[in-house]
Design a protein around this nucleic acid. Sequence first.
DNA 1: GCGAACATACCGACCGTATGGTATGTATCC
DNA 2: GGATACATACCATACGGTCGGTATGTTCGC
Lengths: 214, 214
Amino acid sequence: MTRPTKHQPERGEARERLLAAARDTIRAKGFSGTSVDDLCQVAGVTKGAFFHHFKSKEELGIAAANFWAETTAAFFARAPYHAPIKPLDRVLAYVAFRRSIIVGGLSEFTCLVGTMAGEVYATSPAVRDACAASIFGHAATLVGDIEAAMQNNRIDANWTAQSLARHTQTVIQGAFVLAKAGNDAELARESLDHLDRYLRLLFGEPVREVTSDA
Amino acid sequence: MTRPTKHQPERGEARERLLAAARDTIRAKGFSGTSVDDLCQVAGVTKGAFFHHFKSKEELGIAAANFWAETTAAFFARAPYHAPIKPLDRVLAYVAFRRSIIVGGLSEFTCLVGTMAGEVYATSPAVRDACAASIFGHAATLVGDIEAAMQNNRIDANWTAQSLARHTQTVIQGAFVLAKAGNDAELARESLDHLDRYLRLLFGEPVREVTSDA
DNA sequence: GCGAACATACCGACCGTATGGTATGTATCC
DNA sequence: GGATACATACCATACGGTCGGTATGTTCGC
């Protein structure tokens, strides 16, 4: 791990380590519940490094939300749910994929920006807006397939593709809240099954008789 | 405002004032983001009063969750959505009622226990469990009507009444997260419309053509 | 029915520590 | 040698929590 350069301004490794620490720690302890010292310790850097890269804790929050947006965008772009030929199948595959990645500890699969937005929406509008950009930016990636599915299936709807795309995120975020409260990931999967069923009913697709588990 | 008595140990008024302050302040600033001094100032009491009634900040969190559970239970028990004769209509009226009370500022209609659970689920299991009791206790109040509706409409389902009841809470909690992120209450109403549509499709009820606004 | 003994509700000063943030020094790269 | 990437030491304050005190009940013997 060499030091950074000017012509390759990926900053030092401390910045990335701090962002990764923020991603992991804030998901478990919340934004206010995570101290700058916590982050430095987890990242294995000093406070000097922290305030060299971020001029305040709030700015780290914004950077962490943006980092989350970038990394998850890349992750979902590479995911296999884009493969099906029929648009509706891609949408259903998306939900199935979201369900399939609900594994491990709660703080490993829950959403950083959903957690932060729910906590600091009123006290830190800048962080909130960065979280919103991540959530609604991700929702927007679903609109194309939903629109195509609506045309394909000749759906004359009361609702828009944008609205349904946002609703998928509502269910996912709510699923995380219930899973956290009940301390049980199965609560999240359960609601994604309802979301799958809603989509099939909306588009006149046969509803699966048995939910495949594991 | 008289002092308390032994046979009517409703404690002093400071306790209630602190619980009300917690309800309002934590919804806006989160649990970690709210200090004991904040609560005392909002409640108009001193720190001495705070630690007389609650032995720690965490215990106040638990008491606030229980207070929320009690007051919301009473509120929903008195609400008008129980009136319809057909069970399914009561369920749909519940969703419509939840939609109708999404008015005013975000911190006025969002859920205290959802906010707290999402924030401190890992750092304070006792608070988390109190939040869970509130959320799942409320969900349980819907099970009877859903079960009756399933029998009435002869629904041979892949899912249980309990699961669907929990899903309504998933959508409501998720709706609050998106509304907070987007700083727009309409985002919450939009998802409740999708929930209404899901229920109607599930039970074979005609889907309303136009969503009544306001 | 009255006063001693006790319990409850609340006040406000104080404490030790954790917190976000700063100032300065130093090694490295171009 | 100048900009970048850190490290170290430090600061002011905000934080959760403690403690002694007071005022207002309540209980109960007599």
